[in-house]
Write a protein that binds this DNA or RNA. Structure first.
Lengths: 117, 117
DNA sequence: ACTCTGCATCGATGTCCGTCGATCTGACCC
DNA sequence: GGGTCAGATCGACGGACATCGATGCAGAGT
């Protein structure tokens, strides 16, 4: 999984014509690539992506008890997905009494959106 | 459509009642969520994300022999990642003689970008 | 036909992930 | 304290993934 982007263009065509023009080397550094991949990976599950979609369409915060019936998965599984999203910095949570409310951190999604643009 | 969930005194609800108004979302988004998650999952690896970055920055097509030295991974591993990207519809390939050239299909990235808004 | 080259595929391996039931934690109420 | 409820955590299981060396395969050149 290690990526070395500091390599010089080494290309030595042994013989014959070169296969292609010199490539444009990525200006996305390794650390940034790891961060962007972490964000993409967190969104790389239908449940989590739909969770983010639901949370985003609510301006405020949504309690877990409202999220559970939206998905055909057990409550611990949903909690697991919410934890993944929180660990990726995509959402955060806040406890109010018995209930826990989740909300999107828009900046995380902006990181990925900016790279895609 | 937007339901305010933050201003209600939910902690004072009587026993047996739900914490908030149930919100049902159309299942239309489920198929789209699966597709978007497939795209995000394909980008959820640092090597693949940087591969897309290289191919995107390069206007034309890049042959595999130019990609291999950019990453500190074995050639079969790189081929595996390129296959994943191709299966997700993010890139496509084209053979010219001995070499295989890969290029980005921008429409796939636009799908994800459009959802991220 | 034979060889070399560039890339894909195969088989194996160790790790990670999604899922569940069971259990724990924290908060409320009597 | 005892009971109840909402979520989180735990432990386990099956499947998927990243990685590698070895091998297959097609095209180009001799």
């Amino acid at each position: 999984m290690s990526v070395d982007l500091t390599l010089e263009p080494k290309t030595k065509r042994p013989k014959g014509e070169p296969c292609c023009e010199p490539v444009v080397y990525p200006d996305v550094e390794r650390a940034e690539a790891i961060r962007l991949a972490e964000l993409a990976k967190a969104l790389g599950d239908p449940v989590r992506l739909q969770l983010v979609d639901v949370l985003r369409k609510h301006a405020g915060k949504v309690c877990v008890c409202e999220l559970v019936p939206l998905f055909d998965i057990a409550q611990p599984t949903l909690s697991h997905h919410l934890r993944k999203l929180r660990e990726a910095g995509i959402v955060d949570s806040e406890r109010q009494g018995l209930w826990v409310y989740y909300y999107v951190l828009p900046e995380a999604l902006r990181e990925l959106s900016a790279w895609l643009h």
